[in-house]
Amino acid sequence: MPLKNQKKPLLCFDKKGIYCEPAGVYLDPWKPVDKAIITHGHADHSRWGHKQYITHHTNVPIIKHRLGEIEVSGKEYGETFVINNVKFSLFPAGHIIGSSQVRVEHKGEVWVFSGDYKTEDDGLAVPYEPVKCDAFITECTFGLPAFKWLPQEQVMNDINTWWQQNQSEGKTSVLFGYSLGKAQRLLKFLDPSIGKIFTHGAIENMTDVVRPFADLPETIRITRETKKEEIKGRMVLAPPSAHGSTWIRKMVPFETGMASGWMAFRGARRRRAVDRGFVLSDHCDWQGLLASIKATGCERVICTHGYSEIFSRFLNEQGYDARTAETQYEGELAEMNSKSEENDEN
């Protein structure tokens, strides 16, 4: 594009990830690099094989749990750290516990990389905070006007009512949600007065990691020894990949539910063949994205994963200088598709 000054942008997209050249640092890289600043613990953002990790201190035990022994340093929100004269700081993204946006400042220019984020306070993650910047790199997983979330309280009421209804019919409620983030969010607002809450091992392990930072109800891990009768009528939290597996047979008779933003589409719910879909996402809805971008006061927007082309076209019409960039982030799709494939084999 001819109109820009020829200077290289502060953050650019290369084969390995989002690169800050003056600092020699990558943000959420998808190929192994020397130094990586990580926004949050989901697999598409925090990958294996980097020499050095920098992330919010709450996220440290989470990525260590996932990636094993790595060299990692934890930072506070708002704490400035300087690498080769470039100033970095992390700000809450509200996506999941320990998630951050990355603010990058160099020679008076400020860029913010959102990672994944949501504007609603979910009572678990430190709430999202808009950060003033010149250029904003945003996800747009749900960047379509068809997505409009209901307040969490209403959705959780529906879930608890559904559980109660199933219980009165002698059925177990099996609720699917991603094991990091969604599962703990559900857990926090499930009503333990209805009954005991059981968990799939993957969720129990992750929840153990998160417990020091969150006040969560008691859970019981389902093991080989768990008796069928103990589970009947109870709540079972499981990752989406458990759907259709042999593991779930122990819960018969059961009703299945899934908590995801994709459940806004009737087709998606039927494709997943769950009995009930609950529309609950850890990403922004349409209005949430627009409001956040406005709050940053930015001129330039780069749209990464999601409906990026549609979303950036709309932003252009609204007067922003918006474009798209290819990344390997998957947003909530990871929850819906690829993750399940891994486990279907087992």
Binding site: L144, P145, A146, F265, Y307, F314
Partner: peptide, 10 residues
């Protein structure tokens, strides 16, 4: 934008 949404919702 409505049309794009329609293509996706189906």
């Amino acid at each position: 934008l409505f049309e794009e949404s329609y293509h996706i919702v189906g």
